[in-house]
């Protein structure tokens, strides 16, 4: 009989759940992070215990049998935090073990189509924030970028900035999930950490830069061609809160 699987919300936890899905008596009905699960007295569930051995076995099997491209797609789908991401990934892996790398061709198969859709969404938001993220220079010399993305994209945008702004110390702060990626220009390394902005005194020195940037933003538009719909379509309002030029 199918049952609900609950995991700790980590990628390691998810791949452990997939391992369990193969060997447990009851296959998964859905695979959900603990924080999103609605506990009910009458429902039984299987609690996944994250296990690094199981994680490595499943990762290796995916890489060997379905390929690197599929592995990245699975990771992106996981970052979407979609309710069905867990079970879709489980079905995708199952299908992938049968079809191998050719799974990429089955674009009309519902599971594959769902994975593709989640990838498109997460990938699009990642690309958007490569442009829309705004850093503020703090009086400590650190560059601080708060943002609130729809999907959990911090891990996949940081490498881009670590390459580009390699000589700057910076913090990218996901205010929605209360996590920050902190990059250290001496060691050229970054790490992920829980982060509460209220515990730090973040003092920006950037008022003048904001003024310059806003002046540019205003004057670069051709007013005879004004088109707010088009602007919103490319740059949805939900992102405006952290955009200097939209304050």
């Amino acid at each position: 009989m199918e049952t609900d699987y609950i995991f700790d919300g980590s990628f390691e936890g998810l791949l452990t759940a997939i391992y369990d899905g193969y060997y447990e008596k009851n296959p998964p009905r859905q695979i959900i992070p603990k924080w999103a699960y609605q506990f009910e007295l009458t429902k039984t569930f299987h609690e996944v215990v994250t296990n690094s051995d199981k994680f490595s076995k499943v990762s290796k099997a995916i890489l060997d049998k379905i390929g690197r491209e599929a592995f990245v797609k699975i990771y992106y789908a996981f970052l979407s935090e979609d309710t069905y991401a867990g079970i879709t990934i489980f079905n995708y892996v199952k299908l992938g073990f049968k079809l191998g790398t050719r799974i990429q061709l089955y674009l009309t198969e519902p599971t594959v189509a769902k994975i593709e859709e989640l990838n498109r969404k997460v990938g699009n938001e990642r690309h958007r924030f490569l442009g829309l993220l705004r850093f503020h220079k703090l009086n400590s010399g650190v560059y601080y970028a708060p943002y609130s993305p729809q999907y959990n994209i911090s891990q996949i945008i940081v490498p881009h900035f670590a390459k580009r702004l390699a000589t700057m110390n910076f913090i990218i702060h996901d205010t929605k999930r209360k996590i920050a990626t902190i990059y250290d220009s001496d060691t050229k390394e970054w790490y992920l950490s829980a982060f509460d902005a209220n515990q730090y005194s973040l003092i920006a020195e950037d008022k003048y830069q904001h003024e310059l940037w806003k002046a540019f933003f205003k004057n670069i538009a051709i007013k005879e061609r004004k088109n707010p719909n088009l602007q919103r379509q490319f740059m949805p309002k939900m992102y405006w809160g952290y955009l200097v030029e939209k304050q």
Binding site: L132, A221, N227, L230
Partner: peptide, 11 residues
Amino acid sequence: ICHSWADDGRC
């Protein structure tokens, strides 16, 4: 990479 979109909708 587009970094913003001006009021005329151009990137």
